Simulated scan of single mutants.
Amino acid sequence: MVWPEDFGTRFTVFVDVEEEFDWRAPHDSRNRATTAMAAFPDAHRRFAERGVALNCMIDHPIATDPASVAILSRVVEDGRSEIGTQLHAWVNPPFEGAATSAASYAGNLPRALEAAKLKTLTSAITTAFGVAPRAYRAGRYGIGPHSFDLLATLGYRIDSSVRPGYDYSGDGGPDFSMAEAGAYRERGMVELPLTTVFIGRARRGGGRLYTALGRVPKGRGVFARARLLSRIALTPEDMPIAAALEAVAVAAGEGLRLFNLSFHSPSLAPGHTPYVRDAADLKRFYAWWTTMLDEFDRRGIRNASLDEIIVALG
């Protein structure tokens, strides 16, 4: 992907805005609670005060909950935040077939069923907000062989389902272990991968070495403790800020032009995700963002809204 020179080096923030569920339990179509959304206005205020737009990727329980729609309608009044789409296949009608782990990855579904779910969700979002969504993320990063064509047909411009360095094939999902962090074009769409960076003295080995270490008992842990190789995703969820700052330095030095950071909306209220279990965790969550945004300011890396990204892509 060739970015315009005047775009500079930027960062963007995607939020998986979703229902609450037990992350350790099987996926259940009855899990549609959205109580954590009450914490969203305060989070948005914090980001807006720093000039940061939120790309709110919402799923079916959020799009069909009047209280959540009202909250997000006020969020996009900042003029830079935007509503996108996130498909959680297990809570998104129509429902067909067994609720297996593999079926929780929308890209594994039969083309007609994935298309029907996408159409249902896109229509619900368009009705709720009066504007058709332009960006998409598959829940559980479950992009599949038909997804890009289906998204382009519905008018989407951007996908952000690829998570470089991660392999979900053991659970029936996609394997992104060798994916790159930079943006690229794919069948009428632009892919904006979540930013993952390998740090450490052996980082040149990247995904290939990290995958190989996964086949060695405790191999990844040994390399991480020896500061040889660590996989760092740019998210406050289970990623120490010191490692994230090192990852930014590495990626900036290698010329990455767009950093794509993310978090899940239920993390804004303690007790809904493994990452924010109590008030102390929430305090660390916000401290992570303060330090990261300070680092971007120091480096002259400005925030980019979805609209600014789409304009830059031409």
Rank of each mutant, 00 (worst) to 15 (best):
S265Q: 09
R257H: 09
P193A: 00
A202L: 15
S305C: 07
L109C: 12
L113R: 03
V276G: 03
F47Y: 09
I125G: 02
R74A: 15
V162F: 02
M239G: 09
S265N: 05
A53Q: 07
A63G: 05
G130N: 05
F11C: 06
R46L: 15
R225Q: 15
R32Q: 12
G165W: 01
D297N: 10
K117S: 10
E5C: 09
R299H: 10
A249C: 10
A67E: 15
F21C: 11
T195Q: 05
K218W: 11
Y105P: 12
H27G: 11
A48H: 13
V162I: 06
G170D: 10
I158N: 04
A224Q: 12
H44E: 14
G139M: 02
R10S: 09
F40P: 01
F263C: 01
G97K: 07
A99W: 14
G255K: 08
S81N: 07
I62S: 05
S68M: 08
V2K: 13
I58F: 07
D42I: 11
A244S: 10
A63F: 02
R185E: 12
L109W: 02
A183T: 04
L87F: 10
H60L: 13
V13N: 04
T100Y: 13
F95L: 10
H146M: 12
F7Q: 03
L229D: 04
A70F: 08
Y166D: 14
T196L: 06
L229Y: 04
S265E: 07
P4I: 00
V216M: 13
P240E: 04
T126V: 08
G51F: 13
N31D: 15
D167T: 02
I241Y: 03
E254M: 06
W3S: 03
R201F: 09
M239F: 11
T196G: 11
L229N: 02
S101W: 12
T127N: 13
A98E: 15
T9S: 07
D281P: 01
R74D: 15
K283E: 15
L154G: 03
R302A: 15
G206R: 03
I62Q: 05
R111W: 13
A224R: 10
A179G: 08
E237T: 02
A124I: 01
E186V: 09
L306H: 02
V162S: 06
G155P: 11
R201I: 06
N108D: 09
Y141N: 13
A269V: 05
S169H: 11
L261F: 14
T85C: 13
A102T: 01
A98Y: 12
A33Y: 00
G79E: 12
R225V: 07
H146L: 11
E18D: 05
F176L: 09
V162L: 10
A304E: 01
T127R: 14
D278I: 00
A48G: 10
L154S: 05
V222L: 15
L87V: 07
V17Y: 05
F176H: 07
R227F: 06
K119W: 13
Q86G: 06
W90I: 00
F95W: 08
S104H: 13
M239W: 10
W289C: 02
P94R: 00
R46D: 12
A179R: 00
T196C: 11
P145E: 15
R215H: 14
R298P: 04
A252P: 12
A212H: 08
K119F: 11
H60T: 11
L192R: 00
G172P: 02
R50P: 00
V75P: 08
A242I: 07
R208K: 13
R284G: 06
I62L: 06
S29D: 12
W23K: 06
